[in-house]
Design a protein around this nucleic acid. Structure first.
Lengths: 165, 165
DNA sequence: AATAACATGTTATAATATAACATATTGTAA
DNA sequence: TTACAATATGTTATATTATAACATGTTATT
């Protein structure tokens, strides 16, 4: 038995519409259970984050919003802050970008594996990784409050493509 | 036997002058061995990064430089890029800040444990942490190119202080 | 001394993020 | 239902972080 999760890069391969639908349904539940409003605007921005299934930057979201009418940065950042707060999205620090989360039931942090080539990403919650870090911390009395773990590289597909060249 | 390194937060406790001297000596060696110039400006900026023994932001470096005369952002960023390239400093992505490295002999990445309260940090190169991540990646053919691991929390001292309150 | 390579100075501007205050919407209780 | 408070969004301005582009200076060779 392994505590390891399998990395599944899901680009193109899956029914993204239904994938998003599920995410939205979960998000609605999360908001309701915490007495927070999943307003039209927040939903729209949540959809834009999910849309591409890869990290998206705040100003790219803004550009898309502006296609519907005027909008300014605080509109985007406020919605992003709200979604981050509830764990419905995550911020990728090394890219100044945001990704949707599909395990938003409880607030959490993950480990992100992100393809430098195509942008596909996977969020893991690996016990071995977390344990190794916790162990290092406990070792000398460091109290962990927040973990940022962002692994960049090549996803299996892009690696294969590259190997062929 | 353990592959675990001990976290040593060294604020106040140590002879920072000699600590910096050593770092500078190593940096000079690294530059020489790679036929790169450790110019006066680069040395000055390297010292400023090391000075506080905690993460420092580019514009804080700029402010300090400007006390000696005029200086503009590219001056700082170019020096930082040079130092990053040689592995003499690291960038903390989640803080937009930089820290000095005292194992610059070969280019590498580390795991950073940073105190939210006092800013003290430690750079580890933990085999268990790296192995756990590598294992997750290999598991599905992801090729790692770069690791960002930044653990925020409370250092032993600040944790103790807080517990007392 | 001439040249090429490298490093720094300078100006302008791009990209990312927030402060502060005005207005609109929603939820609750009189 | 209105009145009020709480929450959310709009709007303008500005802070923070980072780079592009080109001019000038410095260093290492020949």
């Amino acid at each position: 038995m392994s505590t390891e999760q399998n990395i599944q890069f899901c680009r193109d391969h899956h029914d993204h519409q239904s994938c998003m639908k599920t995410a939205i349904a979960k998000a609605e539940q999360v908001c309701e259970s915490r007495n927070q409003r999943f307003t039209k605007l927040r939903k729209r921005i949540f959809e834009l984050v999910w849309q591409q299934h890869k990290p998206i930057r705040a100003y790219d979201i803004l550009d898309q919003l502006q296609q519907d009418g005027r909008a300014a940065p605080p509109t985007v950042y406020r919605a992003l802050d709200f979604l981050l707060e509830l764990g419905l999205i995550h911020r990728i620090e090394s890219m100044n970008a945001f990704v949707g989360c599909n395990n938003p039931e409880k607030k959490h942090e993950g480990q992100f594996f992100i393809c430098n080539d195509c942008g596909a990403f996977v969020e893991l919650h690996s016990t071995p990784i977390n344990s190794a870090i916790s162990h290092s911390a406990e070792h000398s009395g460091f109290e962990i409050q927040q973990r940022t773990i962002e692994i960049m590289g090549l996803c299996p597909e892009c690696k294969t493509k590259q190997d062929k060249q």
